[in-house]
Write a protein that binds this DNA or RNA. Structure first.
Lengths: 222, 222
DNA sequence: CATTGATCAATGATCGATCATATTGCTCCC
DNA sequence: GGGAGCAATATGATCGATCATTGATCAATG
């Protein structure tokens, strides 16, 4: 969404404010605007993001922009220093690599918690995995990524620990995977075969399943 | 800190703005004010926290209060709905119990990553643990809690994964432990003996150490 | 020529006021 | 009585303006 259409989109949003998930407010929209700017290369890593410049450009005030930047700080997409504003975080390979052990650890825990309940969900997981295989065949990379992550999200949510889910979501896997693909030309994975092995382990409630999931996640790591 | 002394304290802070770690800004101070209000029982769980009321009381404007509330939302201490403001999160036993598996999983991962380097830090850990034992003898519960958590923090930081550290810190262990002690009269632990066992495992780089740490953390759980 | 201090522009931090929404309480009609 | 409007109020969301800090520039000084 370019700046030109921002106000129009805002109006549309106000009119359709029925879905609570969309009633997210200005700052969420500005956040998406900035995210797109970063992924599209409008701001280079390390470059400053000036609150008032964005505010003027979008025809909003400084407040919501500020709020959006704080949210992006929590996603580790920008960093900011007191009284010196925000800049795009100059993420290195090392930054990207740090995600995998954390994610692997969380998902191992998730699998441990979810194991008794996972057997009942293997059907859903298999439907998922079938769609992943289709996406891989048709070469739809974004869809492949989404479905692959959804598989893991399903496991995490089955654990039934809301904090765990929230921490896992805060890693922003989709965002960082997209950035990683775009900025580092990382090879895309076609993991539906590995997922199938995991699903079988879930089905028989294999006590090794958490470790298998852990190792599977670590194999994404560069 | 009561509201009466807030402005005076603020002035004092402005004058001594030399330490960069203290130059945290208004919202951080307001955040602490609200945290103290919650721990002291000024706001009951579930009660609304009205932005403008706090702003008026502290002689500041709505903005920084809003920002403070967003930070507390990230700590899961308050929850907020769009257009309907913030309220103290009515944390249940279940909420508190959800922390332990997440923390245990993170620390197991930390220990795995830190294992090669932990042997070099056992001296520091032992000094820590000695002080913990002293605090336990003298019955200084808050100090006992701080030192005990610091032991774990040391392990997490030794892993050398900044994301892991940041995620672990975001759990707000000190805060939630304090609240748990205050609100639920949970029994306090004297864990320096268990810590000693862990330190020995670190010293010999026992591959079982990560699992031992995991189980140790889970034993805190209610 | 390096260093120090003054000045200024840029911009983050904060403020006071206004707009928009949710809630409350009241009226009126069935 | 009781529910469907409807006004009044409380308060979150946003705005436009001001204050305060930072970093750059440059002159004065040793």
């Amino acid at each position: 969404m370019g700046a030109a259409g921002f106000r129009a989109a805002l109006y549309h949003w106000r009119v359709n404010a029925s879905d609570p998930l969309l009633r997210t407010g200005l700052s969420a929209q500005i956040r998406e605007f900035i995210v797109e700017g970063i992924t599209a290369g409008r701001w280079e890593p390390g470059e400053r993001i000036v609150e008032r410049r964005i505010a003027t450009e979008l025809g909003v005030s400084q407040g919501p922009v500020r709020e959006a930047l704080r949210q992006l700080e929590a996603l580790r997409l920008v960093e900011s220093l007191p009284n010196r504003g925000a800049r795009v975080r100059p993420f290195t390979e090392e930054d990207l690599g740090e995600i995998f052990p954390v994610r692997a650890g969380l998902e191992r825990t998730a699998a441990e918690l979810a194991l008794p309940r996972l057997a009942a969900r293997v059907d859903a997981l298999e439907r998922h995995n079938r769609r992943l295989a289709e996406a891989a065949e048709s070469g739809d990379l974004p869809e492949q990524m989404r479905l692959s992550i959804d598989f893991h999200r399903e496991v995490v949510e089955t654990a039934g620990n809301r904090l765990l889910t929230s921490v896992w979501e805060s890693l922003g896997i989709e965002l960082w995977t997209t950035l990683s693909l775009r900025l580092h030309q990382t090879e895309i994975y076609s993991k539906s075969a590995e997922h199938a092995v995991l699903i079988e382990a879930f089905r028989r409630q294999d006590p090794e399943a958490p470790r298998m999931l852990h190792d599977h996640v670590m194999n994404y790591a560069p």
